[in-house]
Design a protein around this nucleic acid. Structure first.
Lengths: 226, 226
DNA sequence: AAACATTTGTCCGTATGTATA
DNA sequence: ATATACATACGGACAAATGTT
């Protein structure tokens, strides 16, 4: 039997990583509510580890803006307000625009084909009101472009900002932000620009593709708050 | 004697913060060399604290890309290569362009006046070959715009990326990247666009103002490596 | 192959600081 | 103002993992 080398490069997850992943999930899906006070001792018990890895995880989450630690006083999950969508989306849109710009000259025809397939499937999912699948396909579309752009900072910053957005959708909209056909149209135009190796146009479409949903969601939240 | 209130809002720096600040300084100025292996125990001794705050600081530095921790194996300062300038500058240029775009409608006439003063002083410093002062004035110029943009993510990401650039200048160029009059010209055009509340033009000039030095430095490094 | 040396990872006790009564 | 309760910050000892002899 041929033994695959590096089948699982890292099955071992340290307690810190487990704590980090779980806490981040809990914050994003709202299990840990915005503004909620937490103590390392309680979290440690809930996670089945000691306080040290919990504290380390909390500090990383703080650097990502999910947790607020006041030295010697308290640790709490960061609050979020509807207007925060206007803070998170613009830098993400800008970084994603750069990703498209950088990916344009690098994309292979196979990758272009995959973008087309993802967008076609996305359209179908939207038409069938398959919201969850549409969201995943949209995510894959953007991740593929970000991967090709091959810039670790763009990758990391985008990931964090996307998590903040996902959190706001969970908390404010019960995760049901309806995907739009308009987004698919923007994707097609973006693909067209990428195929023609037109980085500026691709970047412009990418920026629109993030800023339009921002406006939609912000409008939704303003109405909901009335 | 009148006691000034809040003379120093936070004189108390935790051991973790002290360790973080010092280590970051040492990495940026090259005291801790790229690729150098470090042990928390040695650093703890050097900093006069225990391992815990050192480890916490190292983990934050890892999330910023300054340190690489391999579980159970070793901790080392991240290596840098000349081509890394092409990785760091583009996202910074893009985020700074967004900062200019967002600042445009928010800038007061006083702030515009300050930008003009900073740029005028910058020109003088360049002409007098006062490299260090020119660098500081340039930094102030960009920081002011970033502050006005008032976006915590743009602020934080920009700060980290700027530190990476400073590190590369220290390590590769002995910190002597000569400031250019061309940069001042771009600043004047940017100010003009900001005054006219033309966010797109201001963003375009900002992006140029970061990408041009990137090309200069990259060219310098390619020549130096020959 | 197995024991060793080194370094990181984890645990938990204690000190310090903050807020409340 | 003092004391008390509480949570975080720090320290040091032990455990686990890795690479080597």
């Amino acid at each position: 039997m041929p033994i695959p080398k590096n089948f699982t490069p890292q099955i071992r997850l340290s307690a810190k990583e487990k704590a980090f992943n779980q806490l981040q999930r809990w914050i994003v899906d709202g299990t840990l509510e915005p503004g909620e006070k937490v103590t390392d001792i309680d979290l440690a018990e809930a996670l089945g580890v000691s306080r040290t890895p919990v504290r380390e995880a909390l500090q990383l989450l703080e650097s990502q803006g999910f947790v607020e630690m006041r030295p010697g006083k308290e640790t709490k999950i960061t609050s979020i307000h509807p207007d925060d969508v206007l803070t998170v989306y613009p830098p993400l849109a800008q970084l994603q625009a750069l990703a498209a710009e950088m990916a344009a000259p690098l994309l292979t025809s196979e990758e272009i084909a995959e973008l087309k397939a993802l967008t076609a499937d996305y359209e179908l999912a939207v038409k069938h009101e398959n919201i969850h699948e549409a969201a995943e396909l949209d995510e894959h579309f953007h991740n593929l472009i970000t991967d090709v752009a091959n810039n670790p900072y763009v990758r990391q910053f985008s990931d964090v900002l996307q998590l903040h957005i996902r959190r706001m959708k969970y908390v404010f909209l019960n995760q049901s932000a309806s995907p739009k056909l308009q987004s698919a149209r923007e994707h097609w135009q973006m693909i067209d620009a990428l195929e023609k190796n037109n980085p500026e146009k691709a970047a412009e479409m990418m920026k629109q593709n993030w800023l339009r949903p921002m406006k939609d969601i912000h409008q939704l939240l303003k109405e909901g708050k009335k």
